[in-house]
Amino acid sequence: MIIRIDNRGLLNVIKADSLVQPASTNLTIERQALRLRRGKALRLIIPATSAGDSMSLRDNKLVALIAESRAIMNQVLTKADKSIPTLAAEQGRCRVRMMKVAKLVCLDPYIVTAIVEGRQPLNLSPGKLLAADLPLAWADQRRVLGFR
C-alpha cells in the first residue's frame, strides 16, 4: 500500500498560515498490507514491523463464541438431567447451533488463548470455527484451523 500526501493540498486542508511553505517533496508512506475478507466485510491489515509495534487482531465474535461454549457447558453440568436440545428448547434457541457451540469447549487451550489474545489466523472467522469438523487431538485441531 502506498499513501502519497500532497504537501500543498495538506496545507490547504488544515488552513495553514499563508506564510508556511510546503516542503519541496511530497510525503510518501509505503507499507505492506494484507486484504482480508470476512463475509461481506473487507479489511486492510497492516502487519507489525517490529516487536514494539504489536497489533491485536482480536475478533470479539470469536471470543464471544468461546465464552458462549463455556456458558452452555456450565448449564449442562449444573442441569445434568437435561440434554442440550432440551436446554435449547427451554431457552428458545436453535438446538443445532447450540450443539455446535457447545463442542467448542473441547478446543485446544492454545487455540483459545490465541483467540483471546488476537493471535488467531487471519482467515479464522466465527462461521469457519463453527463449521469446522474438529478432531479431538489438539495438534490436529491446530492444523485444521490454520494455526502453525
Rank of each mutant, 00 (worst) to 15 (best):
A41N: 13
A67K: 09
L36H: 03
G92A: 06
A131I: 06
A80I: 06
L62W: 03
G39P: 01
V116G: 01
M1L: 11
P85R: 12
S83G: 05
N74S: 13
K15F: 08
G39A: 12
T113N: 08
E117T: 01
R31T: 14
Q120V: 10
L57A: 06
L62A: 02
I2L: 07
D108Y: 06
I111K: 02
R31N: 15
W138T: 04
E30T: 14
P85Y: 12
A88Q: 06
A131F: 04
A139M: 09
T78K: 13
V76Y: 09
A16H: 05
L65F: 10
I45N: 12
K128Y: 02
K100V: 02
R148Y: 04
K79V: 00
L124G: 07
I45Y: 15
R70W: 08
D108I: 07
L34H: 15
A64L: 11
Q91Y: 09
P47R: 04
I3Y: 11
G9Y: 00
V144F: 03
A88I: 10
E90H: 07
G92W: 01
L107K: 08
L107W: 09
L57C: 08
F147T: 11
L11T: 00
S50I: 01
Y110A: 12
P121M: 03
D59H: 03
V96Q: 08
F147I: 05
N12I: 00
A88L: 06
K82C: 03
I14C: 11
V63P: 03
A23M: 10
R8C: 01
D81S: 13
G127I: 01
Q91T: 02
R4K: 13
L36S: 11
A71C: 03
L104H: 04
T28W: 07
S18Y: 03
T49M: 14
R119E: 14
A41Q: 14
A102N: 09
S69Y: 06
R31E: 15
A137P: 00
E117M: 07
V13I: 15
L10I: 04
P135N: 05
T78C: 02
P22I: 09
L62Y: 03
L62D: 03
A137Y: 05
T25M: 08
D6W: 02
Y110P: 00
R148A: 15
L11P: 00
V20H: 02
A48K: 12
I3M: 11
R142Q: 15
L34V: 15
G127F: 03
D133I: 08
I115L: 01
N123D: 15
A89P: 00
L145R: 03
P85G: 06
Y110G: 02
V112F: 00
V105S: 12
G118I: 07
T49I: 13
L136E: 14
M73K: 15
S24D: 11
D81N: 12
A67M: 08
I45F: 15
R4A: 04
R95E: 10
E90I: 02
I14F: 11
R95Q: 07
T28A: 09
K128H: 07
V76T: 05
L65V: 04
L10C: 00
E117N: 12
K40C: 01
L87D: 02
F147C: 05
A33M: 14
R37S: 11
V63C: 11
N74D: 15
R119P: 02
N12R: 13
I2Q: 10
T28S: 12
A41K: 14
L107H: 05
